[in-house]
Design a protein around this nucleic acid. Structure first.
Lengths: 185, 185
DNA sequence: GTCTATAAAGCGATAGAC
DNA sequence: GTCTATCGCTTTATAGAC
């Protein structure tokens, strides 16, 4: 029977869900030991920097996932509209139709913002730039593209907040459909 | 020289800023004693239920403020477009042009969501209903009005997240201007 | 009403045996 | 690499003097 957590990377999904659900302060080491099945000794073996290093590792993994599944299609797909379509598809899958919040958003609103300032800022800045580029290639004029990219990113984050508050994931799905329609018809 | 905190309500502004900035878990009683100038004895005199009662009191105050300055104009202003205009003005002032986050949003994303579930849900539900009504009276067809109201609320929340992450309040101002333009021209 | 002192529990982190 | 035991500190909350 294979071990559930054989290396550092195996613990990241559980860590991500905890930080998403309870925030940085709200996630305690005892919760982490339960969720990962790892003792404190093992945790500090994998993450010598403790909780902060765990959160940084989760953020790095998220960054890598979005770089592959969102930013790259936006920049590299020769058919710009198709790249934008893939973005909406990936975003819907990642946030599970509104049932999962955005850790970057959660950390941006909390007192974790200063601790991870560069990572948080870069995530949205890179996404915004890639989306602006794709919209431009899809026919939007540069100014309108930058404006609409900002509106799409904010719409996604806001819909996640609303879905959570109303306990109604459909809010997120509707927002994604609206934005997609306006972007690529 | 007047006392800064003579009664329970006088402590709410400081409590609000703390919860907004650090979240529920991230705000400790020692931070609260410093920010309010009140000892623990006084705090538990005003709020026997401790931190949870403090947070609930802050949420209630926010609810009341929005009821007066946002929901009522939306519902009561005979000129629906003017009521919507007043909403945007009040929202911009309340969130200080993007320099201040929304406590309801912060609590909705965190583990505080379940604790204050009814309050958080009601805040957005009531706002959404009042805005839908105003948009309908302003000439939007009912379906489009409900859809757009949802989009406006999400846009506001998302723009606050983005402004915070990018440390760029202008993102919020731009979003408000765009939404206002689409709503009432 | 306000304070200080203190209780009881949980926190992040470390040490050291295995 | 994983565990248990423990350190030192902070947490929320209470008690009781004033």
């Amino acid at each position: 029977m294979p071990r559930l957590v054989a290396e550092r990377a195996d613990a990241l999904p559980a860590l991500g869900e905890l930080f998403r659900e309870f925030g940085f302060e709200g996630t305690s080491l005892s919760m982490i030991t339960v969720a990962t099945g790892l003792g404190k000794g093992s945790l500090y073996h994998f993450f010598p920097g403790g909780k902060e290093e765990m959160a940084a590792a989760v953020l790095a993994e998220i960054d890598a996932w979005f770089a592959t599944h969102v930013f790259e299609p936006l920049r590299r797909d020769p058919d710009a509209a198709a790249g934008i379509g893939r973005m909406f598809q990936a975003v819907d899958a990642y946030f599970r139709g509104g049932g999962r919040v955005c850790l970057v958003g959660v950390f941006s609103l909390g007192d974790t913002r200063e601790r991870f300032a560069t990572t948080l800022r870069t995530y949205f800045a890179v996404w915004g730039a890639a989306l602006t580029d794709a919209l431009s290639r899809a026919g939007w004029n540069p100014t309108a593209a930058a404006d609409f990219a900002e509106e799409i990113l904010a719409g996604i984050q806001g819909a996640l907040v609303l879905s959570r508050a109303l306990d109604e994931p459909a809010v997120f799905s509707r927002m994604l459909a609206r934005l997609r329609q306006r972007a690529i018809g």
